[in-house]
C-alpha cells in the first residue's frame, strides 16, 4: 500500500484499553490505594486510640467501656493540668522564637550575600540530623558536669564560679527544651519562608522604593502581607509539630525533674506504655485533638485566607 491509497482509520482499542478509558473504573482504581492506606494506617489507629480513651484498658488486659471517667480523673490530676500548661507555653514560646529567627534568616538569605548557597546548606543541617541524635547532643550540652556552655563560661571566661544546672530545676529545664526545639525548628521555617519571599517580584520593591517606601515600610506594607498566606501554612505545620513534640523532651528530660517538663505527648506515652494505663494515656492523647483543631483553624483562617488572592486571573 502506498501513501495515496492509505485511508486514515483509528484502530479499535483492546478491551483492556477500553476499560482504562472508562472514567468510573479509573477513579475507583486510582482511589483504591490511597483510601486503603488511609483506612489501614490512619483511621484504624486513630479510631482505636479514641476508643481506648473511653475504656480502662491496661497493657495485657481487656478493658471496659467507662465513658468519660478517664477525662474526669485527668481534670483532677495536677500533673496532667501542668502538662497542658507546659505544652501551651512550650508551643507558644518556641513558635514565636522559631518564626522570629527563621524570618530573620530568610530575609537575610533573600538578599544577595556572599556564600549564599553554603549558608543555606548549613541552615538546613539541624533539620537533616535525626532528632534523637540532636537530642542526645543537647543532653550533653545541658549536662551538669560536661556541659560545654559551663566549660566556656566558668572555666575559660571565668564569668561564673558555679556550673549551670540546666536540667535539674523546672524553669531552667523548660527553657533549655524550648531552646533545643527552636534550634531544631528554624530550618523548616527559614527555608519555607525563603521560598515564599522568592515568589515576591523584585519589581514590587522597586515600585515601592520609587513610591517613597523606606526598607521598614517595604517590609511592613509589601513583604509581610504578601508572605502572610505562606506564613500561615508554615505556622500551622510548625504549631502542629511543636504541640505534638515528643522526641526532644523524652530524650533530654523524660518529663523531669519531677514531671515539670512533661508535654501532653510525653505524659500520654509515660502513662500509657511504661505506666501500662493504655486507656488513660489514650485519653491524654485525645485531649490534644481540640487544641490542634483550634490552632489549625486559627492560623489557617485568621492569617491565611486573603481576599486579594481570590477572583479570576486575567492573564
Amino acid at each position: 500500500m502506498d501513501a495515496s491509497t492509505w485511508v486514515a482509520k483509528r484502530p479499535t482499542p483492546s478491551a483492556l484499553a477500553q476499560l482504562f478509558d472508562n472514567k468510573a473504573f479509573l477513579i475507583a482504581v486510582c482511589l483504591f490505594p490511597a483510601v486503603g492506606l488511609l483506612l489501614v494506617f490512619l483511621t484504624y489507629p486513630l479510631g482505636l486510640g479514641i476508643y481506648l480513651a473511653f475504656t480502662d484498658t491496661e497493657i495485657g488486659g481487656n478493658g471496659h467501656w467507662i465513658g468519660l471517667e478517664n477525662f474526669e480523673y485527668l481534670l483532677t490530676d495536677r500533673i496532667f493540668i501542668n502538662s497542658v500548661w507546659n505544652t501551651m507555653f512550650y508551643t507558644f514560646v518556641a513558635t514565636v522564637g522559631k518564626f522570629a529567627l527563621g524570618l530573620w534568616l530568610a530575609l537575610l538569605l533573600n538578599h544577595h550575600i556572599p556564600f549564599q548557597s553554603a549558608i543555606r546548606a548549613i541552615i538546613l543541617l539541624p533539620y537533616i540530623v535525626p532528632t534523637v541524635l540532636s537530642a542526645i547532643a543537647f543532653w550533653w550540652i545541658y549536662d551538669p558536669q560536661f556541659s560545654i556552655i559551663s566549660y566556656v563560661v566558668v572555666d575559660q571566661l571565668h564569668l561564673r564560679d558555679k556550673y549551670f544546672d540546666f536540667l535539674g530545676e523546672p524553669w531552667p529545664a523548660r527553657w533549655s527544651l524550648i531552646v533545643a526545639n527552636i534550634w531544631r525548628g528554624i530550618p523548616f521555617v527559614a527555608i519555607t519562608l525563603l521560598a515564599g519571599l522568592q515568589t515576591i517580584s523584585p519589581s514590587l520593591y522597586e515600585a515601592a522604593m520609587l513610591d517613597g517606601a523606606s526598607p521598614w515600610q517595604q517590609f511592613r506594607r509589601i513583604t509581610a502581607p504578601l508572605l502572610m498566606p505562606i506564613l500561615a501554612i508554615v505556622m500551622t505545620f510548625s504549631v502542629l509539630f511543636t504541640f505534638t513534640d515528643f522526641q526532644l523532651v523524652y530524650a533530654i528530660t523524660r518529663g523531669g525533674p519531677i514531671n515539670s517538663t512533661h508535654l501532653m505527648a510525653t505524659l500520654a506515652f509515660q502513662r500509657g506504655i511504661p505506666g501500662a494505663q493504655l486507656g488513660e494515656g489514650a485519653a491524654i492523647a485525645v485531649a490534644m485533638i481540640p487544641f490542634l483543631i483550634f490552632a489549625t483553624l486559627f492560623s489557617y483562617y485568621a492569617l491565611g485566607n486573603r481576599k486579594w488572592q481570590q477572583g479570576s486571573d486575567n492573564d
Binding site: E206, A207, A208, L210, I222, L226, W308
Partner: peptide, 11 residues
Amino acid sequence: MVFQNYALYPH
C-alpha cells in the same frame, strides 16, 4: 515609573 509588568501591589 511605569513598569513593563506594571508591578501593581497584588494585595
